[in-house]
Simulated assay, not measured.
Amino acid sequence: MNEFDLISRYFHKASQPAVADLGIGDDAALLTPREGFQQAISVDMLVSGRHFFADVDPARLGYKSLAVNLSDMAAMGATPRWFTLALALPQADPHWLDAFSRGMFELAQEHGVELVGGDTTRGPLTISIQIAGELEQGTALTRCAALAGDDVWVSGALGAAAAAVAVRVQGLALPAAALQACQDRLEMPMPRVELGRALRGIAGACLDISDGLAGDLKHICERSGLSADLVASQVPVHPALAQLDAETRLHLALTGGDDYELCFCAPVTQRAALAALAAELALPLTRVGSMLAARSGALVRVLNDQGQEMALDSGGFDHFIAAA
């Protein structure tokens, strides 16, 4: 099976005229943004052994490869529209390709996003997706829009995906049911696209938690010229970690990657609106801290209930140091 046969068999879908003027089949796709809208464009790369384990279910890998990009659209408040796929494969395995493409397209259909092009080659298993979305001019959620006095919020619960990695890499022990829940969170994260769109006009700064809450919140601090305090007891830890000791639970929730929940900042006056939104979406939204004026020292501090700073031994996942 050559490159063009592979693309035709597993990745060629008829373009929807409302989404793409011209999709797969030419040297480039033709796309027409709607008048009065901005495009949001992002790219993510997943490398075997770095971002996922080599023995992962290919259907779940196809799902996650697109999910992490959808999460970037969610963090901007954008509606995802198109994506491209660059895929390096050690070999063209029909069973693997069938499962991978099925998992990817099922999620694409759920969010109405279309594959419009890409490339394939032989090499170490590497998946790179570029995604484009759109949103009304001037409505994007950006990392530089936090204000001193804003509340810091997170969606969902944190730490489960990192726990699944810790089981494989560090020998962390979890009961079977808890391990399965953590594995599901690692391999099938839920991109919060609907939440991201709903946050426009309510939140200012926003990002998705891919490398750990404490580390990712630093990016908002840096871009907004502020600092932040998190309250340890307010951080929502995934219930699958209930049997671990408190220190380990907090460490996983604050510094573990692959949660793909949203962290966002909003004025205190929006608390009631966010409570109503959480109920509408049936998604927990938890206030975990505050944005503060810039200070010397740590950009992000973690405090106990007495307001004392707690030690934090890691600032988040580093793609050039940590291994999956």
Rank of each mutant, 00 (worst) to 15 (best):
A162N: 13
A99F: 05
D150Y: 11
L107F: 05
V165C: 08
S155M: 11
V113Y: 08
T121M: 14
G171M: 09
H111W: 15
A214W: 04
A205N: 03
R102Q: 12
A163Y: 11
I127A: 07
A203K: 04
I131E: 02
R185C: 12
A198W: 06
R185Y: 08
S128G: 15
L135C: 05
E114G: 09
H111K: 14
E106C: 06
W153G: 10
V154S: 11
T120G: 00
V165M: 07
L107I: 14
V154Q: 07
L125M: 15
T120P: 01
L174G: 10
P124N: 10
F100M: 03
A164G: 11
G212Y: 04
V193K: 02
C144P: 00
R197M: 14
G112N: 09
A140Q: 09
I127K: 00
R192E: 13
L89V: 10
T126S: 15
F100S: 07
C144T: 08
T139N: 04
I131D: 01
Q109D: 15
D208S: 11
A160P: 11
R102V: 00
E114N: 12
I202W: 02
A205R: 05
R122S: 12
D93K: 00
K218P: 02
L158A: 10
A176S: 13
R192V: 02
L141Y: 08
E106G: 05
E194H: 04
T120K: 05
R143V: 10
G159N: 10
L213W: 07
G138W: 07
A166P: 01
A160E: 04
C182H: 07
A162D: 13
G103T: 00
A163R: 08
G156M: 06
T139I: 02
W153V: 12
F105R: 01
P90A: 06
K218V: 13
A146S: 14
R122G: 05
C144I: 03
V113H: 12
L217N: 03
R102L: 09
R200C: 11
P191K: 06
A177M: 01
E110P: 01
V152L: 14
G112I: 08
W96E: 02
A166L: 03
R102C: 06
A88C: 04
A132Y: 03
L174E: 06
G133E: 02
A178M: 03
D208L: 02
R185N: 09
A177V: 12
A166D: 14
D184T: 13
K218A: 14
L213N: 05
L199S: 06
V193Q: 04
L141A: 11
S155Q: 11
L158S: 05
M104T: 04
L195Y: 09
I202C: 03
S155P: 13
C206H: 01
W96N: 02
W96F: 15
R168Y: 05
G112Y: 12
D216H: 00
Q130L: 08
Q180I: 06
L172G: 11
G123S: 12
Q109W: 11
L158Y: 07
Q130V: 08
D184K: 13
G196A: 08
A160V: 12
L179S: 03
A145S: 12
L172T: 13
A132F: 01
A173I: 11
D119W: 13
A203F: 02
